[in-house]
Design a protein around this nucleic acid. Structure first.
Length: 284
DNA sequence: CCCCAGGCAGTTA
DNA sequence: TAACTGCCTGGG
């Protein structure tokens, strides 16, 4: 398990509009932060680039615009709390990615090239509830459509936040979805995933699924088994939830592409079963 | 028109 | 428990 935390993202915070909690946070010399690598890698679904190459996204009750200029990154937005603290947690700013990349680059030539290709990536610390629902929707689906569906859910059930004269919508909490029917989800374009999302909402509301308990479960195997009981959550989705929302950095989500790439590179193009790839990745 | 997309769940053997 | 198959929907 990799967990390096000797490193602190120092930056400058400015209050821009006190009444709207609009703030700015500028961090100099951020190692490993390329917005395109962070936001387009498929770990998140609510970030979109604007006409100036900046990315704007909603997470929690925050709307933030992220712009990289040379060696510094500017975070600007309306935040539920201190923007520096909010961003340090969400963007994992206090982890030394250079150390991790150096270590993994020495494993083999394929990893070296992969890391070079995506050198600016960071693993976001996303909200458990949003990640759970988002990855149930991701099943047998493609990223533009996943993003579109999630946007429609937020627009219909989330809370509106205004920023820079535009409207943004939070991802609805379970309570905000309590009256949503299977048909409502079908109408939003979820397809056969509608019943899975509906049942998951209902089970969280009736406390058959306890999000807090999942947050606190430290044993990865037990956590995985608990996640697998949730409708619409299989092995791949469970691993994504653990990696992107619960800081379980030892998991290795295997989707069709990871399977294909690893089979091609390491198994002489023979398609391997997820179980075999899982074992291989863990050992490596 | 067919095929596929960041899988899951229910059914067989 | 491993393999097989259907599934909403949209785009290439």
């Amino acid at each position: 398990m990799i967990n390096i935390c000797f490193y602190v993202a120092v930056g400058i915070v400015k209050i821009l509009k006190e009444e709207a909690m609009e703030q700015e946070y500028i961090v100099e010399n951020v190692g490993s932060f390329v917005p395109e690598h962070v936001f387009e890698c498929g770990q998140c679904f609510r970030w979109n680039h604007d006409e100036y190459g900046a990315y704007v996204g909603v997470f929690g009750n925050n709307v933030v615009r992220v712009k990289k200029d040379g060696n510094s990154v500017c975070f600007r937005g309306v935040c539920d709390g201190n923007i520096a603290e909010v961003c340090q947690e969400y963007f994992d700013l206090n982890t030394d990615y250079d150390y991790i990349k150096n270590t993994l680059s020495n494993v083999d030539e394929y990893l070296k090239q992969s890391i070079s290709y995506g050198h600016g990536i960071r693993i976001l610390k996303q909200d458990l509830w949003e990640t759970l629902i988002s990855f149930i929707i991701s099943a047998n689906n493609n990223i533009p459509r996943i993003k579109m569906i999630i946007e429609r859910i937020c627009r219909k059930y989330g809370k509106k936040i205004e920023f820079e004269n535009r409207e943004y919508y939070t991802f609805p909490r379970p309570g905000e979805l309590k009256n949503a029917t299977v048909q409502d989800f079908r109408d939003l374009g979820l397809g056969f995933r509608d019943i899975r999302v509906y049942e998951t909402v209902q089970k969280v509301l009736s406390n058959k699924i306890n999000l807090k308990e999942l947050e606190e479960e430290q044993n990865v195997q037990d956590l995985r088994n608990k996640l697998l009981e949730i409708p619409g959550v299989g092995p791949k989705v469970a691993d994504c939830i653990m990696l992107f929302a619960l800081k379980k950095y030892e998991v290795f989500p295997i989707d069709v592409w990871v399977r294909r790439v690893i089979s091609e590179l390491y198994f002489d193009k023979n398609e391997q079963k997820p179980q075999v790839i899982q074992k291989f990745a863990k050992e490596k």
